[in-house]
Design a binder for these strands. Structure first.
Lengths: 153, 153
DNA sequence: GTGGGACCTACAGCCACTTGAGGTTCAAGT
DNA sequence: ACTTGAACCTCAAGTGGCTGTAGGTCCCAC
């Protein structure tokens, strides 16, 4: 079924993860350093595959690497309460919901702005007017959003 | 009304922009280098204030600095067609709408995941199971989101 | 003249990678 | 045995949009 020893390239293919990213996960301590061939090439086994699958899936859910580190530690201790896991997940959900709210506000404002523009010259462009607007009157909320990075493709 | 010469600190106060950020905008060519006092301190006038206001407002709308650079160039030529301005804005709107869709998918999946967890031990935690899930069956879409940064606070 | 806040430059750090340079190893084919 | 050339290796720098720090200088009120 599964080869007991994989090259980094094959591991990458199986997990849809770039080779450089795998090396980087190793560097930051998410993935344990694997055995090497005589020539220095990394060789991976099933546990590495599973761990990397976990990491990639968690990244798709938008968890930060710090959160994933914590989740991996927790999953290494099956006898503990899963309270902390639940807390990590619901904290992350709250972050996502907050970003959604900010983005939705942004979408509304952007739509209003672009809809106001009916062509013509930049000198009388409503978009530029809105952006230059000193009074900020047309802007509903002052704070829209900040760090919005969610997950890798 | 407005002082003809402002220190960087005063400009920052009037635009709700940190002093370091102003210096950084100068460094990357968004704000023209201002005059200096004999001792080397920057002194700003009304045009700088307006330009920085434009930048900050555009950042609140989530435009990238590259897009803002383009918008500023366009607004420096009031006789041009505002077609390009409209294109920049609607491109950005499309990006925001795309991010919204991805985030909404993410929210649904995260909610489903956290709802599935009913406490207990990590060894039988549904959240960890979902993340470790080799088959990825429970995951509706494979690509959720990537760079999601929107605007500064 | 003195105190201290505001200013200056230059550089490191953040996140999660990505890209590039320059060199080595491996496996397949001859 | 030898030759390709793809895959691998390490190390360093770049991405975006700032933020923070260190170590020094300037300005203004007292």
């Amino acid at each position: 079924m599964t080869a007991p020893f994989m090259s980094i390239g094959e591991l990458g293919r199986r997990t849809s993860c770039k080779v450089q990213t795998i090396r980087w996960y190793e560097q930051v301590g998410l993935l344990p350093a694997p055995a090497r061939t005589g020539g220095g090439h990394r060789t991976y086994g099933q546990p590495h595959l599973e761990r990397l699958d976990f990491i990639r899936h968690a990244r798709e859910f938008g968890f930060t690497l710090d959160a994933i580190r914590a989740l991996l530690t927790l999953s290494d201790h099956p006898e503990r309460s899963c309270e902390e896991v639940h807390a990590l997940a619901s904290d992350h959900l709250a972050v996502v919901e907050d970003k959604l709210r900010r983005l939705e506000t942004l979408r509304i404002e952007l739509t209003r702005m672009t809809d106001a523009c009916r062509g013509g010259l930049t000198g009388e462009c409503r978009i530029l007017e809105t952006l230059a607007d000193h009074s900020h009157d047309r802007c509903a909320s002052p704070d829209h959003a900040d760090g919005m990075d969610i997950a890798p493709g």
